[in-house]
């Protein structure tokens, strides 16, 4: 029997951090997604301990402010793309509003830090979501295109192909065949 899971990362990470940080006996509050405020000063060795523990789980402590903002931009974009009922606003407007900076500033900052553009990142995220939806196998390509605010399946196809080099239907096929092989093992 197969079960498809959807992750709410906010809850997941929160619970996880609570679990892990509690073992250190530290006083802290989780103030947001990816934000923890320690209510006391932590000695360097402890920080190293925490850092290496979290690193095992692929969690990194970001230090740089710029990096933080960029991370925020990424998170906002991810949230915007992956929302169930995504608002039909332009990304630029949405980001500027959410993060209280001009879109121009955010765009420049993003490119400086990541060497890639916000638009690219958005497209990447959308295509990622499309991939997830295809893997979940519940919606048709038309429905997926509609959900992601593409004007047509052709539009989705074109962007999909430009990003990954293959068409959504090819991707579908490959996933299906992979599943077949996994099932027969």
């Amino acid at each position: 029997m197969k079960a498809f899971l959807k992750f709410d990362f906010t809850i997941l990470t929160k619970k996880f951090l609570e679990e892990k940080l509690s073992s250190f006996g530290l006083k802290y509050t989780i103030t947001g997604f990816g934000e923890v405020e320690f209510l006391e000063n932590i000695p360097d060795e402890k920080i190293e301990e925490i850092t290496s523990l979290l690193n095992e789980y692929g969690i990194e402590i970001i230090e740089n402010q710029k990096t933080v903002l960029v991370q925020k931009i990424k998170d906002t974009i991810i949230e915007m793309v992956f929302k169930e009922d995504a608002p039909n606003v332009k990304a630029s407007v949405y980001l500027a509003e959410k993060l209280n900076h001009s879109y121009g500033y955010l765009s420049n900052l993003f490119s400086e830090v990541t060497y890639a553009s916000i638009e690219n990142f958005i497209i990447l995220q959308k295509i990622e979501y499309a991939k997830q939806l295809i893997v979940n196998d519940k919606l048709s390509l038309t429905e997926i295109a509609f959900k992601l605010n593409y004007s047509s399946v052709a539009h989705l196809s074109t962007q999909f192909k430009n990003t990954t080099g293959i068409t959504p239907s090819q991707f579908q096929r490959i996933i299906a065949k992979r599943r077949e092989i996994a099932n027969t093992k």
Binding site: L124, E128, K131, G165
Partner: peptide, 17 residues
């Protein structure tokens, strides 16, 4: 690298150049 840092699903990482 983007995949790596953005926590995107490695399973679905398919790219054709």
């Amino acid at each position: 690298w983007q995949y790596h840092t953005s926590g995107l699903n490695k399973e679905n990482f398919l790219l054709r150049m």
